[in-house]
């Protein structure tokens, strides 16, 4: 097995999900390579090499300052034809999914998306992935080894690789890789003070039970007390109380934090498919028959306007001293 991990950086730092993919790649054994494409890739390459990335292939060009589907795919195509990995792994982030879908098509390789487990059977890589909103878990393999097997790995499944001795190799690719038709002209951060859902260890989500936009703070406060991210059900987003970026569920984001607290969410299937793989689920709802209680580890039947502030107070008291 020769595995190539695709790294992404943001503001001069490798994103945490990359180290999770490196951890996954290490578990497969064999040779490990990591490609990093950036305006100044060498600046972040040493960190990758020191945290288990193996041979770190650094491609630097001003055109790589922002993620670009065309240039990233073209540059990786060069590296893949030079190093001939049997598998190419990337985090299943928005950029990762877009890039790998394209690259697999260009190189006519098989692909498995949003994988939650990787193993080796004989000399074959087996990718385990949920589908049908998590109702099915499938093991997928590549039929031939004519092209690499492309895999995106769901964030927050593997722990981050923290160590390993590697080396940095500066790679040059032809300038034609950077001639693209699409280009990023602006980058906007809109987090609204909360951290991003895909990377959060703790998510606290609001449902219709909060009754109105004026009560969003009750749930946000609880998220803040746990240093967690704030999420929401579709009903809350459709009502305009919370922006779409916070939506968890079928038409929003799929998340799997260590702790998910559902506040005033009844648990329609469309919501459950987006969060049911969370490690520990706490649900607060006034209806004891709410479907969310069927999947919760800890269920609290009660008025969220009493329970949530009590939890906020308790967590603040215990965790912030």
């Amino acid at each position: 097995m020769k595995t190539l991990v695709v790294a992404f950086e943001k503001d001069g730092r490798i994103i945490p999900a990359v180290y999770e993919v490196i951890e996954a790649a290490k578990s497969l054994g064999g040779e490990l390579l990591t490609a990093v494409l950036a305006a100044d890739a060498e600046a972040v390459a040493a960190d990758l090499a020191g945290r288990g990335g193996g041979k770190v292939l650094a491609v630097s060009n001003p055109a790589l300052a922002h993620f670009n589907d065309e240039s990233y795919a073209a540059a990786l195509q060069e590296l893949i034809s030079k190093y001939k990995p049997s598998a190419v792994l990337s985090p299943a982030t928005l950029y990762g999914k877009a890039l790998m879908g394209r690259l697999a098509a260009i190189l006519e390789g098989p692909m498995a998306s949003d994988v939650t487990g990787l193993s080796v059977d004989g000399d074959k890589l087996v990718a385990t992935r949920p589908s049908y909103g998590g109702s099915v878990v499938a093991d997928v393999t590549a039929v031939s080894d004519d092209a690499p097997f492309f895999v995106t790995v769901r964030p927050k499944i593997y722990s981050e690789s923290t160590e390993g001795a590697g080396e940095v190799i500066v790679e040059m690719v032809p300038d034609s890789c950077f001639e693209t038709r699409a280009r990023v002209t602006d980058v906007k951060v809109e987090s609204g003070g909360s951290q991003n859902l895909a990377e959060a260890d703790v998510i606290v989500s609001a449902g219709r039970g909060i009754k109105g936009t004026e009560n969003v703070g009750v749930v946000r406060d609880l998220a803040d007390a746990l240093s967690g991210a704030f999420g929401a059900s579709r009903a809350v987003v459709d009502a305009g109380w919370v922006p779409y970026a916070s939506q968890v569920g079928q038409t929003g984001k799929t998340v799997n934090p260590k702790l998910y607290i559902a506040v005033g969410i009844s648990g329609a299937i469309q919501h459950l498919v987006g969060m049911q793989s969370s490690q520990t689920i706490v649900a607060i709802n006034k209806d004891k028959d709410a479907p969310i209680f069927n999947i919760a580890n800890y269920s609290i039947v009660g008025d969220l306007f009493e329970i949530a502030p009590a939890l906020t107070k308790k967590f603040k008291q215990e965790l912030q001293n």
Partner: peptide, 21 residues
């Protein structure tokens, strides 16, 4: 003749039985 093959399907692992607080 697709490049990938699904070799096994299973239901998701059951969630542990929850409790009411």
């Amino acid at each position: 003749k697709s490049g990938s093959r699904t070799v096994k399907v299973a239901p998701p692992p059951p969630r542990p039985k929850g409790e009411f607080i």
